[in-house]
């Protein structure tokens, strides 16, 4: 596979990833390598304010390339604890390191925990394999 899909996190069919940080009891959210590749060079990201609450499926951030704009939907309902401010200055981190320095927000899940339907790395790999087939 051309795109990296780390095993240590979960995925949505909208190409977001979600990783549970047990220590902090938060969920870190970002976009996948596949998503950033399809989007091309990211030039701007509109980030939410920390402290804000966000609902499952609601737009969490807006990511722009030169010729496209996509919403990043929140895969979880909760309170935004932190956002990755570094992306404002360096949106290219979303391209260079989507699973690391390109993280978008840390969300403290509400109680009861509401999340999108989450896929394993294998499940997500199957999804994009199917998507690529359709294109041919």
């Amino acid at each position: 596979m051309k795109w990296s899909i780390p095993e240590d996190r979960q995925y949505t069919d909208e190409h977001e990833w979600l990783q549970v940080d047990e220590k902090e009891d938060t969920r870190i959210v970002g976009i996948t390598d596949y998503a950033q590749d399809k989007l091309g060079d990211v030039v701007f990201i509109e980030l939410p304010a920390s402290g804000q609450t966000v609902s499952l499926g609601q737009s969490l951030a807006v990511v722009e390339s030169v010729k496209a704009v996509v919403d990043v939907y929140s895969p979880v309902t909760g309170e935004i604890l932190r956002v990755n401010q570094e992306l404002t200055e360096k949106p290219e981190l979303l391209n260079e390191d989507p699973y690391g320095k390109g993280w978008i927000a840390a969300i403290k899940a509400g109680d009861p925990i509401q999340t999108a339907k989450l896929l394993t790395a294998q499940g997500y790999a199957n999804l994009i394999t199917d998507l690529e087939k359709e294109e041919i």
Partner: peptide, 8 residues
Amino acid sequence: LDEVLAAR
């Protein structure tokens, strides 16, 4: 021309 640079 580099449109990415112009937009970033």
